[in-house]
Design a binder for these strands. Structure first.
Lengths: 347, 347
DNA sequence: TATAATAATGTAAGCGTTTTCAGAAAGCGT
DNA sequence: ACGCTTTCTGAAAACGCTTACATTATTATA
């Protein structure tokens, strides 16, 4: 590789400005007052030499990385962009860098072990998405007092790690209530997310509660696998249709899966919402573009990201940890549930 | 903040294994052969002490960061997830970490200067998305021989920086040809992307070429702003409709914008494709869910990400730089252009 | 005016690795 | 048994910063 080791260091700057490296460091960090005139000389020298402090040296000396880590099981579809946008924005505001690891492929990848663990010494704190880190490791990190914020996942009750989660149960409750109360559905299918996923479980609870509250019998054959993705949901609906299962509505665990439901239903000649009503969860960007526009539950994805980082930064700064933060949800009524098109939308 | 500085260092491991730190480093990196028995002792010690090497110390000593940077103007919608997935996957395979900076908010954010520049000393190389870094800085980095790969943007001709780009012109050409040849359109509007965006310009070229080739007159009033996002596109179409502009098709610069076009058209009571045909570009995940499913040009977004990282890694390893890599596109015919639904899709 | 307090700067000791260099041990041909 | 490689290992010097502490210059106080 061609050489490029010529770049200047703090020593060069100090020499050129006629001060000690400590003073340069001070104007760099504002850690101690420096006489204006001196500081200016230093700034000029920095400018002239195009000096950029090495992050590694800084980190090593200060023992602060100024970097946050984001752990994800995988980089999902519609859900992912707003989440990352929230996280990146807030991290930037707080002056932190962002390191991203999708952990899923670690297991079955060619590389034997992840070389760096994206924790402890490489970041000041971690935003941990559900199912991206096993409980054992979460415990270990928490026990050594490493700042951690969980998102879309509650803390194990013994640990009290701050968590930012969606009000899944009440959200699910709202949308299923709507299906029953407004549209008179009584054979409502539910499409689960990945196994072990908390969101999915809580949404199922809301679904069951709503059923119970309205005296609609629960039928376990109406619970299917959606996997929180389009393909699996599509497959499940196809199978059901083939098997002749009867249902008048589908509550899909998330919007990506709802897209699959719509696809499967339509290609089987079912009309939505006349034959089957469909609702989702998340109000991800796709949902308004689906056919018909999807009735869903708005979960403030970007806000979850921002709030998580805010809490993480507080933790890093040594402030008190918070309990779980519950983000509210809103029912977004569009057309896939059978409600009429809102009036007055034409230009 | 509570203490957690107790974690072990290479010195602790060396002492426990009864070797020098140099030897520990060697078994850590495999840089020099170490007798099996000794190596095992070291490995045991590492295990027992839960030793994790500090990345910062490593970077400082080795002058390699093992980190790649991704520079983006902003974290967009449907486009973004596949791109990042490609980049992250390939980076992981090559053993690099990934640092992400969205540069847009730097300009108008509260923080005066970005604290760290995500270049030179903080990463081994950079994947640079269009409009995320100004030409001056690109030149500077290239001149000091810093590994750089451009995506969705060609290298300034004087510089010869490797770039991974989409065959925009031929892609646009294909889809506009289709509109003219198959559907007989002759008042085709084009919705531009952000100003200065190369993709947009090349797509416009393809559009113009197709018009010219078929003898369809070019009308500059049919060129509008789409901004590569839903909102702007929606606004433009609304304005056109209000102004009574006549067009029989819209070629939207990208799929996000196409979604906006569809929304605006529909809310004005236009039928698609009967009244107006609509086509997009990218084949982003939403496009198949739009109403009607969007005819578009498939651009291999995830592949762009992967290829960019592969080239970047080669550059970092000191191999020869490549010229621009053009990724092929395919016309994806769905229904929004007026083509009939493909047969045999029912289950 | 002498002296204590205060403010600005410099000195130098780390931070935890990698890596160069040199030394010790072991193998080998003669 | 002798030197000559060939392996493996250790000592110690970087890497480029931050920061505790020492020093000097300045001002306030008696």
């Amino acid at each position: 590789m061609a050489e490029r080791r010529n770049s200047s260091t703090i020593t060069d700057v100090a020499r050129r400005a006629g001060v000690s490296i400590a003073t340069v460091s001070r104007v760099l960090n504002g850690s101690t007052p420096v006489i204006d005139e001196t500081a200016d000389r230093v700034r000029v020298a920095i400018e002239e030499l195009h000096f950029k402090p090495r992050a590694a040296a800084r980190i090593l000396a200060s023992r602060r990385t100024e970097t946050l880590g984001l752990l994800l099981p995988e980089i999902g579809e519609s859900f992912f962009a707003p989440l990352l946008r929230g996280i990146e924005t807030e991290a930037r505001i707080a002056g932190f860098d962002l390191l991203i690891h999708a952990t899923s492929h670690i297991a079955h990848a060619s590389s034997p072990t992840p070389r760096r663990s994206l924790a402890e010494h490489n970041t000041d704190g971690l935003v941990v998405f559900t199912q991206s880190l096993d409980l054992e490791e979460i415990e270990r990190l928490h026990n050594i007092n490493f700042p951690l914020v969980l998102i879309y996942q509650n803390s194990p009750s013994s640990l009290r790690i701050p968590a930012v989660v969606i009000k899944n149960k009440s959200g699910a409750r709202k949308v299923v209530d709507h299906l029953i109360e407004v549209h008179g559905c009584n054979r409502i299918a539910f499409l689960r997310g990945p196994i072990g996923n908390e969101d999915s479980e809580q949404r199922e609870q809301g679904y069951r509660e709503s059923l119970k509250h309205h005296g609609v019998p629960f039928d376990s054959t109406l619970i299917g696998i959606g996997g929180f993705n389009q393909e699996e949901a599509q497959g499940t609906i196809n199978n059901w249709l083939k098997a002749g299962l009867v249902f008048d509505a589908v509550f899909s665990g998330d919007d990506d899966a709802a897209a699959g439901v719509l696809l499967a239903l339509r290609s089987a000649g079912k009309r939505i919402p006349q034959d089957v009503k469909v609702v989702g969860f998340d109000d991800s960007p796709v949902s308004q573009f689906l056919t018909p526009p999807l009735t869903t539950v708005r979960a403030p994805i970007e806000q979850v990201g921002r709030e998580a980082v805010r809490q993480l930064v507080r933790l890093i700064r040594g402030e008190q940890a918070q309990g779980p933060t519950l983000m509210r949800t809103d029912l977004i009524v569009r057309e896939s549930c059978g409600c009429p098109l809102p009036a007055g939308k034409g230009s």
